[in-house]
């Protein structure tokens, strides 16, 4: 089994303030995960804001360096402090998809120009026909076509189309890994499923692995193979998506699941969360604990009694 991505004992600490009133924030603490290149999968990182999920993604993309620990992609350490050539090679293999497509694209620039410059840079294509072919190929994969996109500005497309175009752009260099940071949270309800289904088909039909970052447990359950749940920088539960979400073990995972609004009892107006649950989950934030393997293949953070 060859390793695609290996995240080993990664920590990230941010410092704020100057000499006086200096504070440190441990955004990610002791994260470990591996993705194999043999079997494409959707690996989900679930967490609330401030849980460190975006920091972890930025480190995987090489936009931030870990304070300690190592992230390696296909055997090479991920870092932005490398030569241009090496960095471009890495970028061709790991591509990001961002949260809000309207912010990811410059409103004054036509969408096809993004696709074109990506094709020029990573595929080293020169001729008009080659470029068009590469752009159209990537757009076809996401259910669009070059004819639809050519010459249009971001405001002329719907959020769903634009997010697909963003995914098409990421697919141009045929990367084995996409890092999608909340790709559906800014997309309208009627278009959301088309993006989620698209990620699923990328995995099933094109063999692209996806790191899917979200706070939405329902879509995570729907598409992911494995997932980790993060609470304030710590991984509290990790394992097969169905195993974990059907029956979460860590108090924080349980709290998250209990907070998902269900439509089963629509109209009953049930909105109470058990306060003891919230308290327990909050109390565990301060304690380090350790990840323990469970017989069903998942890992759960457990705490020694005090």
């Amino acid at each position: 089994m060859s390793t695609l991505l290996d995240v080993r004992n990664v920590n990230k600490r941010f410092a704020t303030g100057g000499l006086m009133g200096r504070r440190v924030v441990d955004a990610v603490q002791d994260a470990n995960l591996t993705l194999s290149s043999d079997k494409p999968e959707i690996f989900t990182i679930i967490g609330e804001s401030g849980s460190g999920k975006t920091t972890l993604a930025r480190m995987i993309l090489g936009l931030e360096l870990p304070t300690s620990g190592e992230i390696s992609f296909a055997g090479k350490t991920v870092s932005h402090r490398v030569g241009r050539q090496e960095r471009l090679e890495f970028m061709a293999k790991v591509q990001p998809v961002f949260q809000n497509p309207f912010e990811a694209f410059n409103p004054l620039k036509r969408v096809d120009r993004y696709l074109e410059s990506t094709a020029k840079r990573f595929l080293k294509l020169k001729s008009r026909d080659d470029l068009d072919g590469a752009m159209d190929g990537a757009l076809q994969k996401v259910g669009l076509s070059l004819a639809e996109v050519r010459g249009r500005y971001p405001h002329e497309m719907s959020g769903g189309q634009l997010q697909r175009a963003a995914i098409a752009r990421a697919l141009i260099p045929n990367p084995p890994l996409l890092v999608a940071d909340e790709p559906v949270s800014m997309v309208d309800a009627s278009l959301r499923m088309s993006i989620v289904n698209l990620l699923k088909s990328l995995r099933d039909d094109l063999g692209v692995s996806v790191i899917y970052i979200t706070h939405d447990l329902a879509t995570a359950y729907y598409i992911s193979n494995r997932l980790i749940i993060m609470q304030r920088g710590r991984i509290v539960e990790m394992g097969d998506a169905r195993t974990v979400l059907d029956n979460p073990e860590h108090p924080y995972s349980r709290l998250l699941k209990a907070s998902v609004l269900s439509t089963e009892d629509a109209g009953d107006g049930k909105l109470a969360t058990d306060p003891a649950m919230v308290e327990l989950a909050n109390e565990l934030v301060r304690r380090p604990g350790r990840l323990v393997d469970r017989p069903d293949g998942r890992m759960v953070r457990t705490y020694d009694r005090v």
Binding site: L217, Y221, Y222, D246, K257, E264
Partner: peptide, 10 residues
Amino acid sequence: VASLPRIGDT
């Protein structure tokens, strides 16, 4: 309504 994903249903 139909497009809402639910936990426990894939």
